[in-house]
Computed example of a mutant assay.
Amino acid sequence: MSAGDFWSTSVLNFCIALGVVLGGSTMGGVGAFFTNQPPLYVMDNLADQLKIWALVAALGGTFDTIKSFELHILGGELNQVFQQIFFILSAFIGAHIGTTLVRWLINGEW
């Protein structure tokens, strides 16, 4: 994997995870409004619950990542293992920032 592909994949993982949390909690808040539930409370809960699903969506499924770890560790390609770890971290950071932004928007605090 070239350096350009590495960084573009990292940015895509970050943005996908961020979008899943922001979009899912926003649309859930709209749905809560239409069903006479408190939208801000629902958005806060959904942001927490969607965090793990944002990671899975950004990584394209957890089994591919686990299989990649196995192949690269057994093959002695530790550089590829560190790349996979960085991809997971970039997706986690995107999901965490999404949750933080939702809380900041509905509560007015970080």
Rank of each mutant, 00 (worst) to 15 (best):
Q84F: 03
I97D: 04
V30H: 06
V42W: 10
F69L: 13
T99N: 12
L18E: 10
L71H: 13
L74R: 13
L101M: 15
T100R: 14
Y41I: 08
D44A: 13
W7R: 02
L105N: 08
F63V: 15
S8R: 12
L22M: 15
P39G: 08
E70I: 13
E70K: 05
G4M: 10
A32N: 10
T62W: 13
S25D: 06
V30F: 15
I66E: 00
I16T: 15
W104E: 04
H96F: 14
F14C: 02
A95E: 09
S90T: 15
A95F: 08
A58K: 02
L18K: 03
L55I: 15
V102N: 11
S10M: 14
A54V: 07
K51N: 14
L71W: 03
T62Y: 01
V42S: 03
G98E: 09
T26E: 12
A32D: 05
Q49H: 09
A95R: 01
T99L: 11
H72P: 00
Q49I: 03
F82A: 02
F14H: 06
G28W: 06
L12V: 08
N13C: 14
L59P: 02
W110A: 07
G31H: 05
L59C: 11
F33K: 14
G4L: 14
L12E: 14
H72E: 04
P39C: 07
G61E: 07
D64H: 09
L55Q: 11
Q80P: 00
Q37R: 11
L71A: 09
A95W: 06
N79A: 12
F34D: 02
N107T: 10
G94Q: 06
L105C: 02
Q80L: 01
R103G: 15
G23I: 09
T62N: 07
V21C: 09
D5G: 12
Q80H: 03
F92T: 10
M27Q: 01
G23Q: 07
F87R: 11
G24K: 10
L74K: 03
D5T: 13
N79Y: 01
G61C: 09
G108L: 08
F69W: 14
L40M: 12
Y41F: 12
D48R: 06
I16Y: 05
I73D: 05
Y41Q: 07
N13L: 03
L55F: 05
Y41H: 07
I85F: 13
T62K: 08
I66W: 09
G108H: 12
F14R: 00
K51D: 05
F34G: 04
I106H: 01
L71T: 05
F92D: 00
I16H: 02
A54K: 09
I85Y: 04
G23T: 05
L40I: 06
F69D: 06
F82L: 13
G94D: 03
Q49A: 15
D5H: 10
W7P: 00
L74F: 13
I66K: 08
T100D: 01
I52K: 02
G61M: 07
V11L: 15
G4W: 09
S8D: 04
E70F: 12
W7I: 14
W53C: 11
L101I: 15
L101S: 10
E70Y: 14
A54E: 09
